[in-house]
Amino acid sequence: MKEFLLIFRLSSVPTSSPSPEQMQERMNWLASVAAQNKLADKGNRLAYANAKTVKPGDIVTDGPFTEIKEFITGYMVVKTATIEEAVELAKANPILKMGGSVEVRTILTPDEKA
């Protein structure tokens, strides 16, 4: 089994908080990954507000919004045999319905080469 990081992105801040149906859909998706015994780490959601970016030269800016078109809303780790399987899991994530995207990245073990 290999581990893959799923990074969830949206291009705009949702104007309203998710409906109960949307929450339910997310929960069903997460539980479905767990039910396949492919969940390594539930990860976390990330807040839209209260974000800072730190740059060289003691520059701190508010949020990642100014420079990145799609900002990260959350992440989690799955464990599957291949990256294709991880992609299959990502394809069912409800964020895609909102125009968001999921980036799938291979997590390296300490002795692996990037």
Partner: peptide, 15 residues
């Protein structure tokens, strides 16, 4: 409840 249970502890029966 099953969603929460499977997130807490995987088992084939729970799945």
């Amino acid at each position: 409840l099953y969603n929460q249970l499977i997130l807490l502890e995987y088992s084939p029966m729970t799945a």
